[in-house]
Design a protein around this nucleic acid. Sequence first.
DNA 1: GTTGAGCGTT
Length: 264
Amino acid sequence: MSHFGRTGPPDIRDTFSLLVLNISFRTTADDLFPLFERYGKVVDVFIPRDRRTGDSRGFAFVRYKYADEAQKAIDRLDGKNVDGRNIMVQFAKYGPNAEPIRKGRVKEVVEKPRDRSRSRSPRPRHRDREHRRRSRSRSRERHGRDRDRDYRRQSRSRSRSRSRSPSSSPDHKSHRRARDDDKRRSRSKSRSKSRSRSRSRSHSYHSASPARRSASPRNCKSSPPRRSPTPEKHTNGKDFPPSRSVSPSPKHAGSRSPGSESKE
DNA sequence: GTTGAGCGTT
């Protein structure tokens, strides 16, 4: 996670979370922390990422220790140009109703700020939660759709250990044909994007070097390719960022050769 | 390499 090394929310006892919107996709917690830390005690900086891609979703959560400092940060940093984007800082709501955290505590946090609409973009007023949840982003969705399909396919493939086909009687032919077709498509797809699928980004400002921005302010791809042409699968986990534990990681999608999974 | 409304991890 993007905390101080802990797992999960550090301590939401007496903290005040700020929602930082419209940040750049390259902006990390390392960039936001020194910025927000100038206005108060920042307890945690968290940038939600995509489950599958790991990319930043374009907003962050900065958790302050005191509400007045948080308010000051809002007043100071709201509308500020960070990393080329005009960020929007506001108090964050937790959960669908932003209530189940701390009754009263959050109320104080969610209280209407004074004048947030000074340099705010004319955002549409219809903030429908469900609608927004599903239509989070259409540009990443077109990328995520493929991966989503692939991801689900892998999930199914992984969970086929117990019982994949409840009725393996007469239509195993169509199943086989469909699977073969899917396999071919997956092969071609994985081949076309077998180069730019690994990316790492420092989420915790502990592991970020301050000289990173000086070295390459706009481009953060100065490191040599981490994927050697030899498809050796070393599950060390040491080279990977210690962001989210060690999941089974369906990242080895294109690693398996086509045809070697012709089980059944 | 891209995109740009929005509320979060264990």
